[in-house]
Nucleic acid binder design. Structure first.
Lengths: 331, 331
DNA sequence: GTGAAAGCGCTAACAG
DNA sequence: CTGTTAGCGCTTTCAC
């Protein structure tokens, strides 16, 4: 390659890394030769020689759950034009897999790591803490960031959503959950706390599955719940998928939403606003979360120390017709 | 590291690559030292020294569209336990971005590449053809694979779905499309051909948007269509998202599905079976597609030549209640 | 503005 | 089974 352009290796290297370091004419000649030969520099050699990888590792538990794909979107858009690449791994909700992937990723000496959740194994935490790169935990917040965090409190969000159902006049509020990962469990805790405070908690009105969240699962869980607890007049779903399934199952059973049944989902997926009736949900700023995670990482790499190590992006209960039912009615 | 265990570099290397090459005692000592020091080998150095990367590059146009996340699931599950890693890029439906990412990926000398679609730019095709690794194009099939292909004919699938609507007794069948990527256009061609053959094609009954597919978009497109063409009695949607939006909009307008309006989606997303009524859709084997792509790649790397360079996974029109309307009625 | 030389941290023969 | 010896293809001082 260097020979093809009649210059030394170093000049080619310079041209490719920072064209301004090279004289116009030389640059032209080199770029022409690169185009002609279809030369593509070796990433491994560059990484080894420079000691930098320009890769940001991203570890999430699922690639099919919209919750994470939205965050990924945010990360991709935040990274665009920065010269960094994303290396993306799928931990499939398995801590051991996460640990393994973490090792693989760290062996690439990434410029930074973004990892979902705050519930890593001890080993994973240590690997992250020892990593010679900034780390951002996303999706959740907690008291002990490995390094930085950007997320929101799932417990507080679920508490607010449940409270909204109570305020809307519903009295027998059930909980539907899937996957049962740590964030789901924290949402359940929020639900439970809100109902306990209102003196309305009933452990029987809970239906869950370890399967992934889906519309089908929502319908099935609600069918079981409705058969078992006919007195239930509202459902808080751990995910909008489930809520949509409940909506369809309610339709099949002739339960009016929101009159006979109040319905609240979580995550405010796009369809929640478009459905009929609209489904009340909890909006979380997932794209923003991805962008901020990248921002924190890049900031640290620039030497800027972040204002805060833990960024709480908050949430918002978006009330729609699915919970409009009992508000106007006599209690 | 080698020093910490009191052995030579090569022995450490061997232990980490293939523990059986090393004596039990030595291995123990080395592994202990690795654990104690938290040593993680440099990926770049290994890749450079061995000339292999053990990375499979995957390029898809979107990480939020379920169509691609399903394929990714298949790829991840196919790769599991093989020792290969996935490097995943997001081309955002932009050919120039695809080209750029392709360069980045190839500079890592991947063991293989999986890339969505058959419509790469000339430059991208050349890069792929020149790449020193097997390449699988997925999602679609066509006459000229760069190397290998696994997918199905979008035109044939849309043709069959449209034909199903006609056979069900619908006469004024509209088309709703979003994103308008090459595969969408091919589906439109299939729709058009099927209706033309039946003498029912009307260019006015088409409503599209360049925005990504979504439930909201489906509702909006149908609202526009229904206002403009009240005679429409069935809709073929380019994606199930859109179909769900149509279902909700039909509900708002008091159009019975399937009596007043036949509805057919595409992709057979999970919710199509769970909705009320169930939405007729076209099932495509996306997870299988991902798995087969990995299989083809690994096969080639093993030296096995594939039986066929182009694998057609086919499709299946899954008839549900949303298209049960006019069948029993007099035409 | 450009070239020469010295590695980056591993792997891959080849001995022993 | 283990150590030794060369690089892999770049980047990076340091001269010129």
């Amino acid at each position: 390659m260097a020979r093809a352009a009649g210059v030394s290796e170093s000049t080619v290297s310079r041209t490719l890394r920072d064209p301004t370091l090279v004289a116009e004419a030389t640059r032209q000649r080199i770029l022409a030769a690169v185009a002609a030969t279809g030369y593509v520099p070796s990433y491994a050699a560059r990484a080894l020689a420079s000691g930098r990888a320009d890769v940001i590792g991203v570890l999430v538990p699922s690639v099919t759950n919209h919750v994470f794909t939205d965050v990924l979107e945010g990360i991709y858009s935040g990274i665009e034009g920065t010269g960094f690449d994303i290396q993306h791994g799928n931990t499939r909700y398995q801590p051991e897999l996460e640990e393994g992937l973490l090792r693989v990723f760290l062996s690439q000496r990434p410029a930074g790591m973004i990892i979902a959740g705050v519930d890593q194994t001890d080993t994973s935490r240590r690997l992250l803490a020892d990593a010679q790169c900034p780390v951002v935990q996303i999706m959740d917040i907690g008291p002990e960031p490995v390094d930085m965090m950007v997320g929101f409190s799932h417990e507080a969000a679920a508490h607010a959503a449940t409270r909204h159902l109570v305020d809307a006049g519903y009295r027998n509020v059930a909980f539907l959950g899937a996957q049962m990962d740590p964030r789901t469990l924290r949402r359940f805790a929020g639900y439970r706390a809100a109902l306990s405070e209102a003196g309305m908690f009933d452990a029987g009105r809970v239906e869950t599955t370890a399967d992934p969240s889906s519309v089908t699962a929502g319908a099935a869980l609600f069918a079981r719940l409705a058969d078992r607890c006919p007195e239930v007049d509202a459902v808080f779903c751990n995910n909008d998928d489930l809520a949509l399934g409940v909506l369809f199952e309610a339709l099949r059973r002739g339960f009016d939403v929101p009159d006979r049944l109040g319905l609240c989902g979580f995550n405010d997926f796009e369809f929640a606003a478009a459905s009929e009736p609209g489904i009340t949900s909890v909006r979380t700023n997932r794209r923003e979360m991805g962008r901020r995670a990248v921002e924190l990482l890049l900031g640290r790499l620039d030497g800027t120390d972040p204002a805060a190590r833990v960024v709480d992006l908050g949430f918002e209960v978006v009330a729609r017709r699915s919970t409009a039912g009992r508000a106007a009615m006599p209690a």
